[in-house]
Design a protein around this nucleic acid. Structure first.
Length: 376
RNA sequence: GCUGGGAUAGCGAAGUGGUCAAACGCAUCAGACUGUAAAUCUGCCGGCAUACGCCUUCGUAGGUUCGACUCCUACUCCCAGCA
């Protein structure tokens, strides 16, 4: 197993590409959906189940791990892989998204002061703190601490982008120092992704991508895209037209709607993460090839078919909709697990099929067929 | 049999003369969820109507009152204590 990080593009069609991300903990075949393991677990699913459903990688969150159990403890345990027992490729998010969505967040030139949502402790986050925390956690790929914003106001997004650009060199500097330390200790390298900002504004996205494209980072995140807004595909496209072809791009937080994954892949994103599949599963919203259903609806009470007859996940191979309906109506924890396995499998599998479609030059027709059925 | 307490929408439970179709919880029925403060949140929840609104309700039957879920009488049933 190499201590190095690298990315190879194996096939390209337009902006869409198929590749492999090599990390110290293994390879990720891209495009790939990365499971959201915010607090170092994919909620309701074991890593064995994640492996079985085809997951290649997970993403944990720095903000949440700082609060509990603390990044020093994870370091003491031997890093994320040793602490969790998950030895596949991992990502961490910087915590910027979480911290900046706290009502208590106060942004200044150098970082953010905020209150812990758990106990109200006044805490500080900045590029240096985030980099140190993420190196302690020890994921294979981590994100630069960026200034996230959610607004349709150009000025608001401009300010967030400017801050992000001011902070990025500080992230890189600290990252390089920590990478040097790690090398001296013969510890694995952790790749750094810079996060492009700019909301839904083309001019800002261009400016942000141009600003970052030649900086010494290992890859890129595309941040501050929240919903399937009309502009989203175009924003992704123009961003990836600017970003260098030889580095991976992670579309942050998108994947609750399958169409986001298609657009993302079509326009050159390599990895995705999203809490949607597991969160919605826990709440009874289940993806099928014919669209999303609510398993709690009365019509599934006596439906003795699998949720999705063409799905080969553990849930669909062994259980009926009626059984899952029963588990949800009686609030049995296993229902949430089975639904989570299904949804996570569904999305992981869709992205796997996207990968195959790029290889076969059939992405656009696959996308059309899929969306015609799913969004009928 | 006596004494006391009680009977409110599917269930539990507030209300004790008008602001009551009736708080609240659960259940039901539906909706939402996108770098997870989310096993969470929202709506509906007597009938009819998309809605304005109209109609029928608070054990049963009467009565008092301008007006009753709220007061009075009788009855039915339930619970507790005593015989």
């Amino acid at each position: 197993m190499s201590n190095q990080f690298s990315f190879e593009v194996q096939k390209q069609n337009g902006l869409a590409r198929v590749g492999v991300i090599h990390t110290p903990h293994g390879d990720i075949k891209t495009p790939c959906f990365v499971g959201a393991a915010t607090r170092a677990t994919v909620k309701a699913i074991t890593f064995a189940q994640m492996h079985e459903l085809g997951s290649q990688s997970i993403l944990a969150n720095t903000y949440h791990l700082i609060l509990a159990p603390g990044v020093d403890l994870i370091e003491k345990a031997g890093g994320l892989a040793e602490f969790t027992g998950y030895h596949g490729p991992t990502f961490t998010d910087s915590g910027g998204f979480q911290i900046l969505s706290l009502p208590s967040a106060k942004i200044d030139r150098d970082g953010v002061t905020f209150k812990s949502h758990i106990n109200g402790d006044i805490l500080r986050m900045d590029p240096k703190i985030s980099m140190n925390a993420q190196w302690k956690i020890g994921a294979d790929i981590h994100m630069a601490f960026d200034c996230v914003a959610d607004s349709r106001d150009h000025d608001v997004m401009l300010k967030a982008m400017k801050r992000t650009h001011e902070w990025l060199p500080l992230n890189i500097k600290e990252h390089q120092k920590l990478a040097h330390d790690a090398e001296n200790k013969n510890k694995p390298y952790q790749a750094l992704f810079a996060v492009v900002q700019g909301g839904t504004f083309e001019d800002l996205r261009r400016e942000s991508a141009e600003f970052m494209k030649d900086l010494p980072v290992d890859g890129f995140g595309i941040g501050s895209l929240y919903t399937t807004e009309d502009e989203t595909p175009q924003i992704i496209k123009l961003t990836n037209e600017i970003l260098p072809q030889n580095k991976p791009r992670h579309l942050l937080g998108m994947g609750s709607e399958p169409r986001d994954l298609f657009y993302g892949a079509l326009y050159g994103c390599d990895t995705f993460d999203c809490v949607g599949p597991t969160r919605q599963a826990r709440n009874g919203a289940i993806y099928t090839e014919n669209g999303r259903i609510n398993i709690k609806n009365a019509k599934y009470k006596e439906d003795f078919n699998p949720i999705d007859k063409n799905c080969d996940c553990y849930c669909c191979k062994h259980f009926t909709a009626a059984y899952l309906h029963h588990l949800f109506k009686t609030d049995e924890i296993t229902g949430k697990t089975l639904a989570s396995i299904h949804n996570e499998h569904f999305i992981v599998h869709v992205v796997d099929l996207i990968r195959e479609a790029i290889i076969n030059d059939t992405l656009e027709s696959y996308m059309q067929d899929f969306c015609a059925k799913y969004y009928h």
